[in-house]
Simulated scan of single mutants.
Amino acid sequence: MKKKLLAAICLSFTFSLLLTGCGAAKSENGEVVVYNWGEYIDPDTLTMFEEETGIHVVYDEFETNEIMYPKVEAGATAYDVICPSDYMIQKMIQNDLLAEINFDNIPNVKNIGDQYFEQSREFDPENKYSVPYCFGTVGILYNKTMVDEPVDSWSILWDEKYADSILMQDSVRDAFMVALKLNGYSMNTLDESQLAAARDSLITQKPLVQAYVIDQVRDKMIGNEAAIGVIYSGEAIYTQRENPDLEYVIPKEGTNVWIDSWVIPKNASNKENAEAFINFMCREDIALMNFKYITYSTPNMAARELIEDEDIKNSSIAFPDFSDYQNLETFQYLGEEGDALYNDYWKEVKAQ
């Protein structure tokens, strides 16, 4: 774990230096400036891309969609490739921030399963702007030695028995998704009475919460510092490798099924290099390397066929049968007024 984290820190630091002009000069085939989630790619694939194409990779990381968006919107740094989530891609399309992808330059897109492009139509209606990179669910991770009863509902996150041992996501949409689903509502609702009910539920829960965190859910659960946490399915796979006492479930009230995809900003300086980068990431051996490294589910069907570990290949966490679950949704962009509404309610929760 420490080795992986150290490598990610070094990678981020090195490429951040390059981004600010402190690194080496461009290669003969130019560069591609990539903006991605933290610890969301195998660093070796970046080296391989540079060696095979002669294109220099400038790499930067973000922690949330909400941190990424204003930086891209401001245009101070001309990123060539970004990896936002579904609803944020929808927002970027509506605000004319993305360029249409020339799929003639991405022949490896054939490896991506049709069902993921179909799901992508919810936020990219004509599949013009995005190429799926990873997908997954949000669920409950719990420690079987610390939790007595079976876990199948979001309601356990309100059980006083686990006071100061509950971890929540420090994300307005994820936190409200949990509370909205618990109350039987859509996670994309704009009904203020429903949002107020979710807010009240989160305020009631707050004294029980040890911390609102993001990546730290994984580390705290591995280290037995908490009994229950809200987590992304890809992180759950990794935590189970490190701590066999951990179990992941999708609650019966439903959850978020998400897709993170590669997109190209409209102000990209190196669009063809960006398409070369996306094509490389869609190659089955590269997709497999990234899946093994980050443990987030790959939509790359050819890569899946290469998975040697049958338990992982058939994992219901990595590759769930969505027909087994009810009330699954993908986040939608709710407009500026909708964002403001959620943020206002979230501030009320945090202020308590």
Rank of each mutant, 00 (worst) to 15 (best):
K2D: 15
K4H: 13
L6N: 14
A8G: 15
L11G: 06
S12P: 14
S16L: 14
G23R: 08
A24Q: 11
E31A: 12
V33P: 05
V34N: 06
Y35A: 07
N36M: 11
E39H: 12
L46M: 11
E50Y: 04
E50R: 05
E50F: 02
E52P: 05
V57W: 01
Y59G: 07
E61L: 04
F62V: 02
F62K: 06
E63I: 13
N65S: 09
N65T: 11
M68R: 05
V72D: 03
A76T: 14
T77C: 04
D80A: 05
V81L: 05
I82V: 12
C83H: 13
Y87F: 15
M88T: 14
M88L: 14
Q90T: 07
K91E: 11
D96A: 10
I101T: 06
I101P: 02
K110Y: 07
N111L: 03
N111M: 03
Q115R: 09
Q115C: 08
Y116R: 02
Q119E: 12
R121S: 12
E122W: 03
K128E: 03
V131Q: 00
F135L: 06
G136V: 06
V138T: 13
I140E: 03
L141K: 07
Y142P: 09
Y142L: 12
K144A: 14
T145L: 13
W154Q: 01
S155T: 02
E160N: 11
E160T: 13
V172C: 12
A175I: 13
A179S: 15
K181W: 01
L182Y: 15
N183G: 14
N183C: 15
Y185C: 15
Y185N: 15
N188G: 11
N188P: 13
D191L: 08
E192L: 15
L195N: 14
R199N: 09
R199T: 12
A211K: 07
V213E: 08
N224P: 02
E225P: 00
A226S: 02
A226R: 00
A226W: 00
G229H: 01
I231C: 08
G234S: 05
E235T: 01
A236G: 00
A236W: 00
I237K: 00
Y238E: 04
Q240C: 04
E242I: 04
D245N: 15
L246D: 08
L246K: 07
Y248V: 11
I250W: 03
P251I: 08
E253A: 11
N256G: 09
W258K: 09
D260M: 14
S261A: 12
V263L: 03
I264D: 02
P265W: 01
K271E: 09
A276F: 03
N279F: 12
M281G: 07
D285L: 11
A287K: 09
F291K: 05
I294G: 08
Y296T: 10
P299C: 03
P299E: 02
A302C: 12
A302D: 08
A302R: 09
A303C: 13
I307R: 08
E308P: 10
I312W: 09
F319P: 05
F319S: 01
S323P: 10
D324P: 11
D324I: 11
N327Y: 03
Y333F: 01
L334C: 00
A340I: 05
N343W: 09
W346A: 06
W346M: 04
K347D: 13
Q352G: 08
